[in-house]
Design a binder for these strands. Structure first.
Lengths: 226, 226, 226, 226
DNA sequence: CATGAATGAGGGTTCATTCAT
DNA sequence: AATGAATGAACCCTCATTCAT
C-alpha cells in the first residue's frame, strides 16, 4: 500500500500520478515499466516518488488492487439478474462487465491481464491473486449451477471454471476489436440499446449454455462412454 | 535467422546456448530477457553471442520459429483422425497436441504464448504471427464444420474461433497442474493408456461439441429470439 | 542544451567537467570522443553525466555553441575599426580575433574547425552551422566591399569568400607555431605592442588586399581575357 | 607497408579490398573506420585481413601513401607549363591538379585531407606527412619565385606558402560543389574545353597573382609602414 | 514533505585482434 | 594462404534507489 503521503496529495496531483503510472504499466511489462519515466511524465521529483511508494513493486501492487476495485465498480453499475436467474445469467453479467471494464478501463484491464498470465516476477503475488481473484468465483458459480440442476452432472466443474475464466479475461479485447468499441460509444445507460454487443454476447453465451447445460441426450452419451 | 556460425557450432554447445536462451525468454518478457544473462550462463564471450545472432531480436525470432516447428513435430507424432472424422475430432487432436507441447516443451510454449498475447515490441512480427499462426487455422476449421453441418448455422464462427484459440493456448497449463504431468509420465507411445488425460480431454470436448453442434432445439430457440 | 542539473552544479565542478569534455572533443573526432573517458577523468558517475546531458550529441552541440560564444567574446574585446574603415580593416580584425581565439581557446577552436570541415555525423547540424556561421559573414563582407568599390568587380565573391573563410580557420594555428604564442604572452591589452603578430598579420593582409583590390591594370587584363 | 600476401592477391581481389578500404576511411575518421566493416563488405575472412596487413594502422598508412601516388599520377597527366613559365603557372597547374584529384579520386582526397588536418591519432605520422608532403613544395615554389622576381620581396614566403597549401587542399571541394563536377564530365583530354573550370580557376589565380606579385605601388606602401 | 543530484550496476552492441584449424 | 570462431574491453545509455538539503 502507498504511504499516507500519497493519499494526502491534492486530488489532481494524485490522480495525475496514478494515471501516468497506469499508462506506464499497461504499455510495458513489469520489468520494462520505468519509475524514471513515470516521474518524468508526472513532473514530480524522483525523491517524491519514493515518499509515496516504498518502491516500484509497491506501486505495482497498488495498481493491481486499484484495478480490482474498478472492475468491481463497473460490475455494480450493470443491471443485476432477476430473482430466479440461472447461473448463465450471472455468467452473462460477468462477461458483459468484462467487456465494459475493457472498454472503460482498458489500461487497468491490460495490467490485470498481464498479472493473470503471470508476467510478474513475484511468485507470492501470483498465489495471492489466484486466491482472491476470479478463479474461485467461477468455480463457485459452477458448483451452484450444478446443485440447482443448471449444469450437467458429468461436467468437470474445475476444468470448466478454468475455461470460463480464460474466456472472461480475453473476451473484452475481442469485442473491442470486432465492434470498434470506445468509451464514447459504450455508456452504462444504453446497455439494452446496444444490439451489436448483446447479440455477440448472446452468441457466445448460447454456446456456453448449450455446452454446459444438463441435456438428456448428452448425459446418455456420456454414460455410454463410461 | 541465426548466422552460419551458430549452426556450425558443436552440437553440445549449440544446444546448451539454445537451452539457456529458451529458459531466459520463457522466464522473462522480451524486454526483461537479458543477452548478458544468457552469455553469463552459457559461459561464452559477449562477442561470441553476436557472432551467432545479429541481435537480441533475431535470437527471439528464431526461438519463435523453433517453437513453431517443435509444436508441429509433436502434432505429427499423434494419431491422425480417421477418414470420416468430424471437426471435433480435429479439435480434440489439436487440444491434445497442445497439452503434449506444454508438457514436453513448456518453455517454448510459454514463449509462444507470450507472443500470442502481444507481449512483443515488434508490431510487424505480431501480424506475421497472426497470418501464419493458429488464428487462421481455427477459423477455417469452424467454417468447414459449418459447411459439413457439424456446426450450428447460428454460430458466429469468428468469435467461436477466437474462443477456441484462447482455450487452445491455455489448456496445457491446466492439464499439467491438474494431473501433475511431466515429460516422464507422458510419452507419445502411451497416449491411449493415459485414461486421466483422455477423460479430462473428453470432458472439455463434450462441452465444446455440445456448445457448437447443430441442435434442433437450440436453433429453434435462436430463431425465436430473432 | 544541457539540463538545469548541469548549470546548478557548483562552479568548480561544472567547469571541471566542461574542461575535460572540451579536451576530449578537441583531441578526438566526434565518434572517437568518449563519454566514458570524460566521466572517468571527471570522476563522476556515468549516471551523473546523463543527468547533465541527454546524450553525447547534446554535449557536443553545447560545446559548439559555447565555442561560438567565446569566439564572439574575444572579437568584442578587440579594438573596433574606425568610422571610415574598409572591408580590409574588418577582415584584419576578424583574422586577428581568429588568432586570439586560437591562442586563448585552442581546444574550442579545434572543435569548431572539426565541425567546419564536416567531421560530424549530423547533417542537420552542418546546415545550421553554415547558415549561422562564418560562411555567410565573409560573403556579405565581400559583397559590401564590392558595392563600396573596395573590391574589384571581376572578383568571384563566392569563391573569394570561401578562400577567406578557409584562411580564417587555419591562420591561428600557423601564428601559434610560427611565433610560439601562448596565453601568457598574448594579452588583449598589449595588442598594439605585439609587433611580431601585427607584422605577420600585415603581411597576409597586404597580400589579400593586393589580390582583391580594384586595380586599373588588372581589370584591364581581365577585360582583355574576356 | 602491406605484407607480400596482399600483393600476391589476384588483381581483382586486391583492388576490391583496396576500394572498400578507401571508402571506409573516406567516410569515417580513423577511429570510426572499422576493419570489421571492411572484411564484411569485401567478403574476406577476418583472419585474411591480418594476413595482408599487420593491423588497422598499417592499412591506413598504405592508403595515405597510395593516395599520394595517385595524386602525383594525376599531376603528371596534366599539360606541363612551357619553358618560361612563371611560378604562377606552376601554382595554377597544382591547383588544377588538386581539382582533378578531388573529382577523380574524391575518397583518396578526403583521406589525405583528414590526415592533413591532423585527424589521426599518430603524431609520428603527422610529422612524416609534413616533411614529405606539399608543405615543402609550396615553400620552394615561392622561394624560386622570389629569386626570379615574380614575387614581391616583402612577402613572407613561409606564411604565404602555408596559405597556398591551405587553399590547395580545400579548393577541390569548392569546385565540385560549385560546378557540380563528376568523373563523367571532367576528363583529362578536355581540359582546355572546360571553360567553367578554367574561368573559375583564373579568378582565384588572378587574386593570388595580384596579391603576391612584385608591384611598385604596394612595395612602396610596405616600406612606408616599416 | 519536496527536491533532484549521485550512484554504479546493468543493459545491448561493436570493436580490433588472435589463433587453431 | 585462408578461414572464421573466440575474445573481452569498450562503447553509449537507462535503471531503481538513496540521501543530503
Amino acid at each position: 500500500m502507498p504511504k499516507k503521503t500519497f493519499f494526502n496529495l491534492p486530488d489532481g496531483k494524485r490522480e495525475k500520478i496514478l494515471d501516468i503510472a497506469i499508462t506506464e504499466f499497461a504499455e510495458n511489462s513489469y520489468t520494462a515499466a520505468s519509475v524514471s519515466e513515470i516521474v518524468r511524465k508526472a513532473k514530480i521529483a524522483k525523491g517524491s516518488f519514493y515518499q509515496y511508494f516504498d518502491n516500484k513493486k509497491e506501486l505495482y501492487q497498488y495498481l493491481i488492487e486499484y484495478g480490482t476495485e474498478e472492475r468491481f465498480n463497473i460490475l455494480k453499475k450493470l443491471p443485476v439478474p432477476g430473482k430466479d436467474a440461472s447461473l448463465f445469467d450471472y455468467l452473462r453479467l460477468h462477461f458483459l462487465s468484462a467487456v465494459y471494464f475493457e472498454v472503460h478501463k482498458p489500461r487497468l484491464a491490460k495490467i490485470a491481464y498481464r498479472a493473470f498470465i503471470e508476467e510478474i516476477p513475484f511468485p507470492e503475488m501470483k498465489e495471492e491473486l489466484q486466491r482472491r481473484g476470479t478463479t474461485q468465483f467461477f468455480k463457485q458459480l459452477l458448483t451452484q449451477g450444478l446443485v440447482h440442476g443448471d449444469v450437467a452432472v458429468w461436467i468437470d466443474t474445475d476444468l470448466a471454471a478454468y475455461v470460463l475464466e480464460v474466456i472472461y479475461y480475453q473476451l473484452g479485447k475481442y469485442f473491442i476489436n470486432r465492434l470498434n468499441l470506445t468509451k464514447n460509444n459504450l455508456d452504462y445507460q444504453e446497455i439494452n440499446e446496444d444490439k451489436e454487443i448483446l447479440q455477440l454476447l448472446s452468441n457466445i453465451m448460447d454456446i456456453i449454455e448449450a455446452g454446459l447445460k444438463r441435456n438428456p441426450d448428452q448425459s446418455e452419451k456420456f454414460l455410454a462412454v463410461e
